[in-house]
Amino acid sequence: MKKNISELFGTFCLTLFGCGAAAIAGGTVGAVSGLGLLGISLAFGLAVVVMAYTIGPISGCHINPAISIGMLAAGKLSVKDTVGYVIGQSIGAVLAILVLSTLLNGQSGFVAGEWAYGSNGWGEGYLGNYSMQAAFIAELVFTAIFLIVIHAVTSKLGNVTMAGLAIGLTLVLIHMVAIPITGTSVNPARSLGPAIFAGGMALQQLWLFIVAPIVGAIIGTLAWKYAIATENN
């Protein structure tokens, strides 16, 4: 239970900091320039770094259902723990957007609109207006890369003390490329929270941000296990 609660807390923080950076401080705030693409990328990545060193010793700091399912596919996590982790992660993300929506609705004149609260999406009217095919490929490929990095840095030959930093910086790089395409998910829980509160197109398109990251995580895990890892890993 403590592992599940740790995953809930970690995903809560990741979603609140990341989506909060995008929804509250991403653009121009009054007369002050917002964070922009780089700032939002750093918010997500640094949240992972901080949580890795906070809850990593307790639960491994997955804070992402795709990672937990990838670890299940690798034989590193039981079915029972995977289910508990995913439930905890999902609840954490929803609670984070509950807090974020409360904050945003406290702003005079705030109107949520489509794809609110840092929701992921694609198509006409969403950021770079990319197609569904581009969105699916981006989420699949970047999640696969993410899982390969995670498996590598947490393997026997990896530097355990630096693993959290390497994983967080990888997420920064992924966001720097993928934000214009999908807003960057690579994490079904992170997408679930905003979609529930935003509704509309965000909720209709949620399926892609569940399916593509999970498929990508399994592909990345299999690629690491059978094409990259050595017997010493």
Rank of each mutant, 00 (worst) to 15 (best):
L16W: 07
F17A: 15
G18P: 11
C19R: 01
C19A: 14
C19Q: 02
C19E: 08
G20P: 09
G20V: 11
A21H: 06
A21F: 08
A22G: 12
A22W: 01
A23T: 12
A25L: 14
T28V: 14
G30T: 07
A31S: 14
A31E: 10
S33W: 01
G34H: 02
G34M: 06
L35E: 12
L37N: 13
S41L: 01
S41G: 10
S41D: 03
L42E: 04
G45L: 08
A47D: 11
V48T: 05
V48Y: 09
M51S: 08
A52H: 13
A52D: 11
A52F: 10
A52R: 00
Y53N: 06
T54F: 13
I55F: 09
G56H: 00
P57N: 05
I58T: 15
I58V: 15
I58R: 10
G60L: 01
C61K: 01
P65G: 13
A66P: 13
A66V: 07
A66I: 10
I67K: 00
S68F: 11
S68K: 06
S68C: 12
I69E: 01
M71L: 13
L72P: 13
A73P: 14
A73Y: 12
A74N: 12
G75E: 10
G75R: 07
K76V: 10
L77M: 15
S78L: 04
V79C: 13
K80A: 11
D81E: 05
D81N: 09
T82Y: 04
T82V: 07
V83G: 05
V83A: 06
G84M: 03
G84S: 05
G84E: 04
V86R: 00
V86L: 07
V86H: 03
I87E: 02
G88Y: 03
Q89N: 08
S90T: 15
I91F: 12
I91D: 04
G92S: 08
G92L: 02
A93Q: 06
A93M: 05
L95I: 12
A96Q: 11
A96G: 14
V99L: 14
V99G: 03
V99E: 04
L100R: 04
T102N: 11
T102I: 12
L103A: 13
L104D: 08
S108R: 00
G109N: 06
G109A: 08
V111C: 07
V111F: 11
A112D: 06
G113F: 03
E114G: 05
E114Q: 13
G118T: 00
N120A: 01
G121Q: 01
W122T: 12
W122F: 15
G123A: 00
E124T: 07
Y126V: 04
N129E: 09
